[in-house]
Amino acid sequence: MVKHILKRLVLLLPTILGVVTLVFFMIALAPGDPARVMLGERANAAQIAQLRAELGLDEPLIKQYGLYLSRVVRFDLGKSITSGQQVAEEIGKLFPATIELAFMAMIFASVLGILLGVTSAIKRNTWVDYTTMGGALFGVSMPVFWLGLVLIMIFSVWLDLLPTGGRMNIRYYFTPITNFYVIDGLILLFKEGTAKYLVSAIQHLILPTIALGTIPLAIIARTTRSSMLEVLQQDYIKTARSAGIREKRVIYRYALRNALLPVITVIGIQFGLLLSGAILTETVFSWPGIGKWLYVAIGARDYPSVQGGIIFISVFFVLINLVVDILYSVVNPKIRLQ
């Protein structure tokens, strides 16, 4: 098992190297001079030449690539053009916001998706099944940002129940501790005895969670249903039933366990995709995470930030896929024993 994991980790290196290489050359060959972008329209030729020399832009491309690689290996992603901050530091500060949202969306999608999928499979070809699967089909056909806006319109504008965006009531004097606001809220609940931070953090999470979680919810429900239907036809389920085991136990104890195997893979893949899907959701809900930050960086042609952000998200995505694969072989003896 350990050998298997190590092998997979080693195989990962060329992929990550490929990602870094592709990102570097895509940005390096992009039209426009980064030095000019950094200095603005009014800069003169001498200033631009000086900055180009400082940034190493006059060096041959191969040398620049080598330098970039040697820095990335040390987790140095360069400085942001617009803020002057270290890109790696900025990512570190923003990432908790994105992870918090993505994590919530995934819990929402997984719990509800598995529940709906199982129900649908048990009540196959009834109105429950048709409604759920019809709803799932609508879910995958919807633009995420539109769903977000409609949710804001209904729950914030018309019903005035939930905030339209942000992570915390701006009227509260709030200094983040961990940058995971739900955790911060819990800490403050115990330390200061007030629940208002926790409540506000959760209130701000509800709508973005639904918007971001709807597509994975639909996909998880569909996968669970079809996987469950397949398992329910297997001989060992018939055996269990004919042995007189209660139907509930047959379904949840014997069928669901095996039916969940493909669902785990889907959940993992969707979690990786969420991080990039967060660009749209975070923009709609003014959620100060990595997606919105990347969107702003792209607009400002802040190349070090764009490069760093993309490399970070892609490597994270690849790592999640690896974890899912390993998890899959842990829970599935058929693969584990190979």
């Binding site: 995709l273 660009i279 993309i310």
Partner: peptide, 11 residues
């Protein structure tokens, strides 16, 4: 290895 939406945005 690139999330699909991210790749389109970059291109």
């Amino acid at each position: 290895a690139f999330p699909y939406i991210l790749l389109t945005i970059v291109i």
